[in-house]
Computed example of a mutant assay.
Amino acid sequence: MRTILSVLLLLALSLPVAAWAQLTDEELASEPPPEDATFDDFAHLVPPTPEGAVSWDLLGSTEEIVEIVNRRSFLRPDYPDEVKALDGQTIRIKGFIYPMQNQEWMAEFLFTALPPSCPYCLPAGAGYIIETRAKNPIRFSWDAVLLEGELEVLEDDPYGLFYRLNDARRVRE
């Protein structure tokens, strides 16, 4: 999984800018978000929280702290007590599968508050992304899905991830 994350980040950083510059407005189909865009500008895309499930608002309330060590920056979480209390708990959360490989059924993927829109771009900040390891492979869907699994609150993830959902399974609503 870590290798896949590294490759995805490398691809995102190495896309030729000239290729994007050649696209017309019609080909882009929409304007890019403004430089000062925030998660709130896209909050209308977050699926509603089902009864008894954890909300993305709660997970997203984790503050992102940037630390510089030896001229390298690292993203560190500052979790609210309500989020810390979820560590090791079985939770339900509704969101979108962000595939890490080109497969219909996946055992490892990212789960996000916002729908995937670019194969090289993560759709949200660290508080709105969960590294997911499924108990059995889960079928990709463009629609929001409800997952259940054991939430792991990560303290020092080398990739800047804040959450992992272990033994995840899809729950029918």
Rank of each mutant, 00 (worst) to 15 (best):
L154M: 11
N102I: 10
E152P: 00
Q101D: 13
F42D: 12
A113G: 09
A134C: 11
N70L: 00
W56Y: 00
G52C: 08
T62P: 03
A53C: 05
G52E: 00
L86S: 09
S55K: 07
V145P: 01
E104R: 07
G95N: 05
R72S: 11
Y120G: 02
S73A: 12
W142T: 13
L110T: 02
P50A: 08
I138C: 10
I97D: 01
Y128C: 02
I130H: 01
N102T: 14
N70S: 12
M106T: 09
A144K: 07
R139M: 14
L45H: 15
W105Q: 13
L86D: 07
V54D: 04
R92A: 12
Q89V: 09
G127Q: 02
K84Y: 00
S117R: 12
L122Q: 04
V54I: 12
Q101M: 12
L58D: 05
D57Y: 00
I65N: 07
A144H: 08
Y98N: 02
I130K: 02
E108N: 14
R71H: 13
G60K: 01
L86A: 11
L114W: 03
N136E: 15
V54E: 06
C121A: 07
S61C: 12
T49H: 11
A43H: 15
E108S: 11
A144C: 11
R76T: 04
P48Y: 12
Y120T: 05
R72V: 07
T49S: 10
H44P: 13
G149V: 08
I97V: 05
A144G: 07
N136V: 12
A144S: 14
A53T: 00
